[in-house]
């Protein structure tokens, strides 16, 4: 039975097509990895080759020796961690009552969060610049955290609402019968039960902040440049320093990819039922 299925023609066609599709989508990133471990001189060779002729970590050494990139990584990490903490702190309780204590105001609130996701960041970036300037927070970590939070909170709200939707209301009620106030029930029962969903949401908000470019471009200048800004600057500062750029891009993207791959199953769940992109 099983054998027969593997041998039929449409099965082979389907598997073949899927393999081609998957490979063609994986190739570009593979090429990035391959390029980053070529010697700097080979990166711009004509014609280009896919695989490195010799293995070299020259590009990585160069970007790590520069003072800007490591500092930018620290900035990115700080901003992303703080954004995640702040977004979860406000979004988790709100999503909880919005789904479990449904009433007109909570429905309106969720609708507002949904609408917020449609706001183009550039439309928000212009007045945010004004706001942060008047607060004296331009080019500071708290300023950028606030800007990123404006994008992360709606995302976290929608994801957490989807997770809370699947939680039985009785859990909270049982806790209240067992002697908890509503707050205690939330803290002692609801939060621990939801750790999986919270972790996925945290990862998504972290990635939102980690990947963010436009606000960082608008709202930072020297002190708090984040990694994507510095990587983008390899364009102008070093001319076309492709080798360094690929190495920096790998350093910047690989950790996130590894973590997400490790948590693949939960993430795909979060993605598909929130139907939102980070």
């Amino acid at each position: 039975m099983h054998k027969a299925r593997h041998l039929n023609v449409s099965g082979i066609l389907i598997n073949g097509a899927a393999l081609v599709l998957v490979l063609s989508y994986a190739l570009p990133y593979m090429y990035l990895l391959m390029t980053s471990i070529k010697p700097a001189a080979d990166v711009q060779q004509i014609p280009p080759s896919f695989f490195p002729a010799v293995l070299s970590f020259e590009n990585f050494r160069e970007v790590l020796r520069s003072s800007t990139l490591p500092k930018a990584f620290v900035n990115s990490l700080t901003v992303a961690v703080l954004t995640t903490a702040l977004s979860l702190a406000v979004a988790v309780p709100a999503a909880y009552v919005a789904t479990q204590y449904r009433r007109r105001i909570t429905t309106l609130f969720l609708l507002f969060a949904l609408v917020t996701r449609m706001v183009p960041s550039v439309s928000l970036g212009v007045p945010l610049f004004q706001l942060l300037k008047s607060l004296g927070l331009l080019d500071t970590v708290p300023g950028l955290v606030l800007a990123h939070t404006s994008a992360a909170v709606p995302l976290a709200l929608l994801l957490m609402s989807a997770f809370f939707e699947g939680m039985p209301r009785e859990l909270e009620e049982a806790a209240r019968m067992d002697g908890c106030t509503r707050f205690q029930a939330f803290r002692k029962i609801v939060l621990p039960v939801m750790t999986g969903g919270i972790a996925v949401t945290a990862l998504f908000t972290f990635i939102t902040s980690w990947n963010e470019f436009l606000y960082a471009l608008l709202l930072t200048s020297e002190a708090t440049k984040t990694a994507p800004i510095v990587i983008a600057e390899y364009n102008s500062v070093y001319g076309l320093a492709w080798g360094a750029m690929t190495a920096a891009a790998v350093l910047y993207s690989l950790p996130v990819i590894v973590v997400t791959l490790a948590l693949q199953k939960q993430i795909v769940g979060g993605l598909t039922f929130g139907a939102v992109k980070g």
């Binding site: 039985p168 009785e170 859990l171 009620e173 049982a174 806790a175 209240r176 019968m177 067992d178 002697g179 908890c180 106030t181 029962i189 039960v193």
Partner: peptide, 16 residues
């Protein structure tokens, strides 16, 4: 509820 000194068994049990 916490101050009413009563215990409840739910249809779904609602175990933690």
């Amino acid at each position: 509820p916490k101050d009413r000194d009563i215990a409840m068994v739910f249809q779904s049990y609602a175990l933690y």
